[in-house]
Amino acid sequence: MNTISDKDMLSNQVKQHFDDFNLSDAQADQLGKVMLRSRKPVTQTSFLQRYKSISAVAVLMLLVVISFGFREFHQHQLSAEIASEVSYNHNKLKPMEVSGNNFSQVADYFSELEFSPLQSDYLSAGSLTLIGGRYCSIQGSPAAQLRYLDDNGQLVTLFETNYDSRKFNFLPVHEKGEKPRVIYSRGYKVNMWIEKGLVMASVQKPDAS
């Protein structure tokens, strides 16, 4: 048996020194668990995680597309409903409640509205003559219906209502240089736009200027 004073080869002393250091069973198990994580299930998990990431991106993109499509659809539907409503009113030719060529006087009649009807810069580009107006509504919002005659004696109706950003924010803005949205309904050409803080819609025969 070796004592502390017995000489031995350095190699044996080094080996004996390290023989005193061994992993306990618990430590070996712990390292074994790390190695287990490196095996196939980990690879499958990695694949699954990657698959999940790709799926999440695809779902997100799909939601964006659906959301965009739904918005477009909703805007298109609302435009069509407005066009149908104003073209119906234009065609119906309900009696005018106020007559006159002077815009200010006709506008003063609409005192019950929450806005003051305005002369449209866009519509006055052509030579139109105001003949009168009446109360009406667009999509449930109180509106002014103004009737004009063009050079050919054709009737042009301008509808004006207050701008509600939640409902009408998709319409082009005249002040930004945007062109009106055009929809044909009931055989009429309907232009819709936002001008001076009001929603405006004009209805006329398609061949009218």
Binding site: D6, D8, V14
Partner: peptide
């Protein structure tokens, strides 16, 4: 050749590289 006691004394004053070398060598 070295006694266990001397080896332990030596080991305690060796630096990292020296201990590493003895491990890799032996």
């Amino acid at each position: 050749q070295i006694t266990k006691y001397s080896f332990q004394q030596c080991w305690s004053i060796m630096n990292i590289e020296e201990r590493e070398l003895l491990f890799l060598f032996f």
